[in-house]
Amino acid sequence: MATESPPAVEIDGLHKRFGSVTALRGIDLTVERGEVFGFLGPNGAGKSTTIDCLLDYLRPTEGRIEVFGIDAQQESGRVRQRVGVLPDGYDTFPEYTARQHVEYAIASKDATDDPDALLDRVGLAGEEARVADDFSKGMTQRLMLAMALVGDPDLLVLDEPSTGLDPNGVRLMREIVREEVDRGATVFFSSHILDQVERVSDRVGILADGELVAVDSVEGLRGAGTVADLTVHCDPLPDAAVAAVEALDGIESATAEDGRLTATCAGPAKLRVLDALREHGAEIHDFESTAGSLESVFAAYTGGGGDSDSAGAAVESPGVAE
């Protein structure tokens, strides 16, 4: 592998239509080698469709995908030799034990891994001989992760990996992602949960309605222009103060209940909320601010937010819509 070798993933003008439904409207994306790229978006945004095109489960209507410079449609087998996959919407092999699943993966990749060691690594030690049909969703996810790790893949593609995992499982998944990156692997994973993306990703792409609306580092997305939830505890909390907050620029929503005002607002508006409350007779006892929920980050990037451009995020222009 030369240093000027092609990126891990290169997606170029990817469109996908299912009959009259357009699922992807021109995705352009580059995932560099060795990075953890989080693919963020609500259900139905097109995350799985993109990943399915990468794995050749689906054929793109237009555009092309290359993985390590290999065409993902023409030479899908070569791509999958170098990729470890945790797919979405899968089912285990009927009547296969956990170990037999991993053995299938090892045989398929001509790898030399020890199945039990892999199962131990994902926390399934002691379950090797159990038939996977009886596994819980979380255990099945762990099993799929073990299969994905077979053969030390150069790229891990994880579609909603935390589905069904308990907090320990989520932590384990995160640790394994870090270990794999330390080994030199690239990780491309999708999620609809911002928190998980934030904790492991170097960069994040936000997908909404079949378009990639932003690609940036987590810090960039959380920057000044993005959105946060602000809760302010006041006594008293006059209606006039609530109304004044609602009227502010950059406020997505504001609700008042039991002396607690909750506002979803663009970053810089947070201080203006506090100012407006005080000006209109509210006395602030306490306040807390959480980073934006996915929905609010989305709102900032897909219309509602207003000054999101100041985030310094590389907001990409929408692709050519059909």
């Binding site: 794995l55 087998g77 999958r80 030799q81 919407g89 089912d91 398929s108 299969m147």
Partner: peptide
């Protein structure tokens, strides 16, 4: 069932 997605996650 979706097990084809697992089968095809490997280089066949």
């Amino acid at each position: 069932s979706g097990s084809l997605r697992v089968l095809l996650a490997f280089p066949h």
